[in-house]
Amino acid sequence: TETYKYDDKREAEKAAEEFRRRGITVTVEERNGTWVLESK
Score class of each variant (00 low, 15 high):
12 A>T: 01
7 D>L: 14
31 R>W: 07
10 R>K: 11
2 E>Y: 11
15 A>I: 05
29 E>D: 05
33 G>P: 01
5 K>P: 04
8 D>P: 01
29 E>I: 15
4 Y>Q: 07
39 S>P: 13
29 E>K: 10
6 Y>D: 00
23 G>A: 02
18 E>T: 05
38 E>I: 15
7 D>M: 13
24 I>W: 14
19 F>P: 00
27 T>D: 04
12 A>C: 07
32 N>W: 05
4 Y>P: 05
1 T>G: 13
37 L>E: 00
15 A>Y: 04
33 G>I: 00
36 V>N: 03
4 Y>D: 04
29 E>W: 11
34 T>D: 05
4 Y>E: 04
32 N>Y: 05
27 T>L: 08
38 E>Y: 13
18 E>I: 07
13 E>L: 12
15 A>P: 00
19 F>S: 02
31 R>G: 03
28 V>D: 00
28 V>E: 01
27 T>F: 10
35 W>Y: 08
11 E>P: 02
17 E>I: 06
27 T>S: 09
8 D>M: 04
20 R>F: 09
14 K>M: 10
20 R>S: 07
26 V>P: 01
13 E>A: 05
30 E>H: 11
24 I>N: 06
24 I>M: 12
8 D>F: 05
32 N>V: 03
31 R>I: 13
36 V>P: 00
34 T>H: 14
11 E>G: 05
28 V>Y: 03
40 K>E: 09
1 T>S: 12
4 Y>M: 10
40 K>W: 14
16 A>K: 04
38 E>Q: 11
29 E>G: 05
21 R>F: 06
19 F>W: 09
6 Y>A: 02
11 E>A: 12
40 K>P: 11
26 V>N: 00
26 V>D: 00
29 E>S: 12
3 T>M: 12
17 E>R: 06
10 R>A: 14
6 Y>C: 02
37 L>T: 03
26 V>I: 07
36 V>R: 03
3 T>K: 11
26 V>R: 01
11 E>F: 04
13 E>S: 03
8 D>C: 04
9 K>L: 11
24 I>P: 00
40 K>G: 11
32 N>I: 02
19 F>I: 05
14 K>A: 13
16 A>I: 05
12 A>W: 01
1 T>R: 09
5 K>R: 13
36 V>Q: 04
27 T>G: 03
17 E>T: 05
2 E>G: 12
19 F>T: 02
39 S>V: 15
7 D>F: 14
14 K>Q: 10
21 R>G: 06
18 E>Q: 08
31 R>Q: 09
2 E>C: 13
8 D>T: 15
17 E>A: 09
35 W>D: 01
36 V>T: 05
9 K>F: 10
28 V>Q: 02
29 E>H: 12
12 A>H: 00
1 T>P: 11
22 R>N: 09
8 D>Q: 06
24 I>F: 15
9 K>I: 09
38 E>T: 15
27 T>R: 08
17 E>G: 04
33 G>H: 03
25 T>E: 14
2 E>F: 15
8 D>G: 05
25 T>G: 06
9 K>G: 04
38 E>V: 15
7 D>H: 13
27 T>I: 11
5 K>A: 12
13 E>H: 07
14 K>L: 11
21 R>H: 07
7 D>Y: 14
9 K>M: 07
2 E>Q: 14
28 V>W: 03
6 Y>S: 02
40 K>Q: 13
21 R>Q: 10
26 V>L: 04
22 R>G: 06
20 R>Y: 07
18 E>L: 07
4 Y>F: 11
25 T>V: 12
9 K>R: 12
37 L>A: 02
25 T>R: 10
27 T>E: 06
10 R>D: 14
26 V>W: 02
3 T>H: 09
33 G>Q: 03
13 E>D: 10
3 T>Y: 13
34 T>P: 00
31 R>N: 07
15 A>L: 03
26 V>E: 00
25 T>D: 13
29 E>A: 11
11 E>R: 05
25 T>S: 13
37 L>C: 04
18 E>Y: 09
29 E>N: 08
12 A>S: 02
31 R>A: 05
27 T>N: 08
18 E>R: 08
17 E>Y: 05
37 L>W: 01
35 W>P: 00
16 A>W: 03
34 T>V: 15
